[in-house]
């Protein structure tokens, strides 16, 4: 990994990993490795997720009842743990998404005038 590459990657905000996992699982059940890959792929490799940190987050979500876990078979015919979004998790995802959008919008509005001020 080059230094340039690293500079462009962004550390995840606290709690956003949970949101990303829920969003990913909305597309269907997946095993841990697949979730990590999906997040990396869908964010065009901008978001840097240390793959290990996925697991405490997954367990946190299981404990809250937002996702469930079951045995399944992976694409290359291996036994693996599959994580699946629960009904509660689906509701939570909606709540979190709208919260996140509100937050992102608010931050964008705050940052915008400052940029303009800097230009003039």
């Amino acid at each position: 990994m080059s230094t340039r590459e690293q500079r462009e990657r962004i550390e995840l905000l606290q709690g956003t990993l949970d949101l990303l996992i829920l969003r990913t699982l909305r597309l269907g059940p997946a095993h841990g490795h697949a979730i990590a890959k999906a997040i990396e792929f869908r964010s065009d490799d901008v978001l840097q997720v240390e793959q290990g940190s996925l697991y405490p987050a997954l367990h946190r979500l299981i404990k809250r009842g937002w996702i469930s876990v079951q045995d399944g078979t992976s694409e290359n015919n291996r036994r693996a743990k599959f994580y699946r979004l629960t009904a509660r998790g689906r509701r939570q995802l909606d709540v979190e998404t709208s919260k996140w959008q509100k937050l992102a919008g608010a931050i964008a509005r705050i940052l915008k005038p400052a940029e303009q001020g800097g230009e003039s």
Partner: peptide, 21 residues
């Protein structure tokens, strides 16, 4: 039980990643 599952999960994960690499 969850902790035992976790060990398995992490092993699987690492193997998949290694395979990808």
């Amino acid at each position: 039980r969850m902790m035992e599952d976790l060990d398995q999960d992490i092993r699987d994960h690492l193997e998949m990643e290694t395979q990808d690499n």
